[in-house]
Design a protein around this nucleic acid. Structure first.
Lengths: 153, 153
DNA sequence: TTATTAGTTCTGCGATAAGAGAACCAAAAT
DNA sequence: ATTTTGGTTCTCTTATCGCAGAACTAATAA
């Protein structure tokens, strides 16, 4: 029952885990993704993850599947080996940023819908709302553009 | 006990509320902020909010104070009137975006710290990590720049 | 055919969150 | 001096989360 992860690595997993928790990821998934980023081998099996993090099977299973739906991790298989080898999908960040930025679109549309239904009496306030919507549009467009620029660099 | 908010407005409050919930705000605060955006009068008192949303005093109080700490709302007072008049701080968005972008810095530093402690055996993986950190730096810098550009427009 | 592997799914439980309602409190009005 | 106003804080309930542990399952191995 050897451990395969150093004290320093364990410490980094916790530290990174906390950062990921602050980004809205539950403790166990956060640790799993951290492990896959920190472990010497960037491809680990279910049981290696489970053992390194001392998680239950259910927690491991749920964490992995959650991260898979988020596309934060992926897995490969090896011929003649039933196990899956999970890895952190480091380069999904661009896609994930893009998606969250485009998600602001719903917010912007909502602001415009509110504006259309507002009393016209509150001139100053409505102007602010409109400016907000315009800023959002601008921000969305420009943010996407900077990601594109990075990709075509 | 008249109502001061139309059916349509009530509907918009719910719709906007749900969007804000998806951004991580609890139901009651989400409704309060939505109300302050949608209501004909953009400045409402504690009791007007409470009554329009049919919330308990504690829920109203907590929601308001939570939104105040987030700077999503503010309040003014009127001379010789003990009540506070709450309003949605529409223009805090730029500040709030800026802050959340700068928050990515901690993530980037973490990535670099991980990189410094990684085995050098996994060349490809480490290269990806480095590229991620570089992308993050770029994204942070450029995002801040686009907000600045909007402000100096 | 039976056992093992590589997980998944199903309770169950402790911890936290959201909000109601009532008690509470300080400042102002009566 | 006591009542009212404009809240805040405390207690309790219900709901949901995060996870462990055990039961389960489908595919492979013996």
């Amino acid at each position: 029952m050897e451990n395969s992860i150093t004290e320093k690595q364990r410490e980094l997993v916790e530290k990174f885990g906390v950062i990921e928790e602050q980004m809205g990821i539950a403790p166990a998934p956060a640790r799993v993704n951290a492990l896959l980023t920190i472990s010497d081998s960037p491809e680990l099996t279910f049981d290696e993850i489970r053992e390194a993090l001392q998680l239950s099977k259910s927690a491991t299973s749920n964490a992995i599947n959650y991260l898979l739906t988020l596309d934060r991790i992926g897995y490969k298989t090896k011929p003649g080996d039933r196990k899956r080898y999970f890895y952190s999908r480091l380069n999904q960040w661009k896609a994930s940023f893009r998606k969250s930025i485009l998600g602001l679109d719903g917010y912007t549309n909502m602001i415009r819908e509110i504006l259309e239904n507002r009393t016209t009496d509150t001139v100053q306030f409505n102007k602010q709302l409109e400016e907000l919507a315009n800023f959002m549009d601008y921000y969305i467009k420009e943010s996407i553009a900077i990601i594109d620029r990075w990709e075509k660099r």
